[in-house]
Write a protein that binds this DNA or RNA. Sequence first.
DNA 1: TATGAATGAGTCTTCATTCAT
DNA 2: CATGAATGAAGACTCATTCAT
Lengths: 206, 206, 206, 206
Amino acid sequence: MEKPRSARKAKGDGHLRRAEILRAAEAIFVRDGHEGATIRKIADEVGVSSTALYMHFRDKDQILREICQGAMAIMLANNTEISRQPIDAVARVRMMLQAYMDFGLQNPNAYRLVFCNTVDEAATGPTELVGDLGSQTYERFESVVTELAGEGRLRYGDARTATQMLWMACHGLVALRITRPTFEWQSAAELAAAMLDSLLHGLVTD
Amino acid sequence: MEKPRSARKAKGDGHLRRAEILRAAEAIFVRDGHEGATIRKIADEVGVSSTALYMHFRDKDQILREICQGAMAIMLANNTEISRQPIDAVARVRMMLQAYMDFGLQNPNAYRLVFCNTVDEAATGPTELVGDLGSQTYERFESVVTELAGEGRLRYGDARTATQMLWMACHGLVALRITRPTFEWQSAAELAAAMLDSLLHGLVTD
Amino acid sequence: MEKPRSARKAKGDGHLRRAEILRAAEAIFVRDGHEGATIRKIADEVGVSSTALYMHFRDKDQILREICQGAMAIMLANNTEISRQPIDAVARVRMMLQAYMDFGLQNPNAYRLVFCNTVDEAATGPTELVGDLGSQTYERFESVVTELAGEGRLRYGDARTATQMLWMACHGLVALRITRPTFEWQSAAELAAAMLDSLLHGLVTD
Amino acid sequence: MEKPRSARKAKGDGHLRRAEILRAAEAIFVRDGHEGATIRKIADEVGVSSTALYMHFRDKDQILREICQGAMAIMLANNTEISRQPIDAVARVRMMLQAYMDFGLQNPNAYRLVFCNTVDEAATGPTELVGDLGSQTYERFESVVTELAGEGRLRYGDARTATQMLWMACHGLVALRITRPTFEWQSAAELAAAMLDSLLHGLVTD
DNA sequence: TATGAATGAGTCTTCATTCAT
DNA sequence: CATGAATGAAGACTCATTCAT
């Protein structure tokens, strides 16, 4: 770590700069939303010219894309780790859902970017390229529910329906909390517990 | 009704024009979001100059406001009607949630506008002014759940927690379906049934 | 004078309406300046649609023109009356200048419109058409100063120079008071007196 | 210095560009007034896009501000230099007024901007920020007149009144010449001489 | 005479992006 | 790798004016 001589940031190797930009961008996306996060704001935050961002990223969307992929990578890691644990399938389902909600609540900006933005057919947006990681994450979760179904413990419907329904419910908790921060919500922990208790008690037989 | 001779549109008495604008605006707001829905796009869609919009609405936000209020008014009417029905509280809860999801799925544009856009502290936005109608709608629902709690039939938590959790779960179903239309979802009916069955079976005692 | 039945103004004969518009326009010109006085503001003030103004005036400039002419007509009347008075020429000069300043200070909006706006060669603006009345007003004044010069009482220069110089000095008093209303000026009366005393004492021999 | 190959302007190091913009802006402000001087006109005059102006100035008002300050700085320098000269107070008064009028006549653009535009209470405009330089300039002049009054040589009124009256008269000369360039004025030198002679002869005792 | 609806040109300003250095 | 200067397109909104009724 050499001391930078100028007021500007040390122009170290590009990797640091890239990460720095991503960090700043994510923060601003959180604060100002998708449209509010302009290339200039990001550049100012990092302390470089706006042109400089184009050294590291093709365009604004690519920055978004990378942020989304970062988020999804974490989710995938979570699910992968949980699916390895030698515990009851219900427990694994519960853990995955809990981890999902925890991540969303703790990374609201990334979450909104990935899960609350519409993905149209054009698939140009930043969310689309998450697809691969997203699919794997979803599959990890689906396979546990399928395991559960294989044990004949689903009270209603099939594995696919159960998988999607559980995801949806948990998504609703995170999404509504994020988009309506001023509403007088009960504590997140309480809500999450109530939701998982109800859903799993209602859905799964012992 | 004579045919207009000039290039100008001559489309009746202005009430029609207003409604036409609202319709176009809603579609665009849904498609392109709050910031992406520009006055120009709306005007183009309607086929008039952008200036013309200012004859009918004070500014962009007023257009949004009216759309949101329209949506909320319907939801409120739904809940009001259901709460009058002389049937079991659980049945009313179920009906309200089902009506909520139905509305959302059938009016994705309006739903997204009201429930998927972030409402920040500034509260200047169009969504905020829905508050009054929104509060009443929420209260109608909460009072049924409270009735249920009063009968001692909640397996977990209190009425407030249950109210919010149920809302959140159903919101998740609608929201995810809307924002990810290309995902291979099970049928909406199936998912809604599974969700309500599980939630209510898990949450409520007979 | 019939009572108007509607909330709108009685749609009496056009002369009243014209005058009404001019009055409203002048007030707004005073308040908001030349560019700030929009056709809509005037129409709103009068209580008619903006289109209605075009019934009475060709365009915005014509309204301005008429206001200016009204102002100049008063000035001309002043000077005409004073020049008829059988008193010393110096007294008449003094009275004209005093009347000029009084008018300007009491009708700042009109004054600015006529005397503080640049009149370019194009002569399209509203100020230009005042020319006729303006010329006469100027001539009335010049002839008194010429009379004075004829009596050999001008200490410096010729009649033309004296005429212009006196006008300019008095214009400066009015103009600066109007454009800098917040400056801590001495009272207008005091300043006017000091100016006329000095100028005439310095310029004219007994 | 190679010739630029592209259509873009490549005009040195930006300082030049700034000055170029100021020059163009001043001319246009003078011609078309405060509201009439639009960003686009200025940009067109300079030969760049309107966006380019925002690289050099925060907004339209900042351009105005700089122009005004430039003008006032010169006036202040004039008065400061004159007040240092070891000559009779009357001579210094006369020199200051003469310099004032000369500046105004030679820089009509700047003069009108600073002295002929209304400064309302809001005080947001560009002219207001001249205040500091303006005040100092005024004070330099006032102190000479006060010196004169201290010597008991004012025939009428007090120092404040005399100061303001003198300023006003000279302002009138400049202002009217500027706003009515087509009028058949006597030569500026002649008028200025007549005015100073009369005023000072009338106001000051030997 | 009057109007509501409409328009095209214009206002300032901001955006993502590019070019030459 | 980085920059300052520049751009065209677009943002919301206002203006004077006109058209059909």
